[in-house]
Design a protein around this nucleic acid. Structure first.
Lengths: 113, 113
DNA sequence: GCTATAATTTACCAATAGGTTAAATAACCA
DNA sequence: TGGTTATTTAACCTATTGGTAAATTATAGC
């Protein structure tokens, strides 16, 4: 429940229903009912998920007659991408060590022949 | 509280103390006391944060005398990076072009019906 | 064996998260 | 006007989170 932007974004993404909603919005604007359709939970639960996404600034909402269409607002994902990019070298480094290890194994095998 | 791996990782990252702990581990292995030092919270709170990070597989722990050194295990971040990369095209497009893109997608969908 | 340090476990607390049902609001349609 | 559909709000419940203080375990050094 920390209030900083990055924590709010990570928190919003830490739920499979909310990630599925975002994925659904990648194909265009959707109404709440559209978004709710694939899930086995009630409308109020969907409304709550949408509020979390809206507060995290990951979706935008408008009004059209009795509908409240949602669309993707991907900008906060950029901040996460930047945060995570600081760590990219660490998992790439682990991969390099694995390659070294595999090469070493192959060399040993050849010596054993 | 969902149990899928991606949710667990996002959840673990949704706290500034835990992200600071990970950042601290980028400069090498640290003891629990080392990690606790910058924060104004008690040791048990740090222990809990470390458990969250360990369950999310973001750190590894060993034993050395009375110390329990921690080190970074960055692999789960790779999964997040892959998840987020699906959204990169959405924030890379300018706001106007994003709208165009979504409209175009919807048009295509209609044509496919 | 005694004492100090490192870290965890236990028991507790308040706030939040994610869900529910039932009621309320908003806009369309006839 | 009244009825139907879309969505939200209110009230509630349970489990989890992030924190605490106090007690416990593990190890080192004398």
């Amino acid at each position: 429940m920390p209030t900083d932007q990055l924590s709010t974004t990570f928190q919003a993404l830490a739920d499979p229903t909310r990630r599925a909603i975002l994925a659904s919005l990648t194909t265009g604007e959707k109404t709440v009912s559209d978004l709710a359709e694939p899930f086995d939970i009630t409308m109020p639960a969907i409304t709550k998920h949408l509020k979390v996404l809206e507060k995290a600034n990951l979706i935008e909402r408008t009004r059209e007659a009795q509908y409240r269409p949602c669309r993707l607002h991907p900008e906060p994902l950029k901040d996460i991408d930047e945060w995570i990019s600081e760590y990219r070298k660490f998992w790439e480094a682990s991969f390099d060590r694995l390659e070294d290890y595999l090469k070493e194994l192959q060399t040993k095998e050849k010596n054993d022949e």
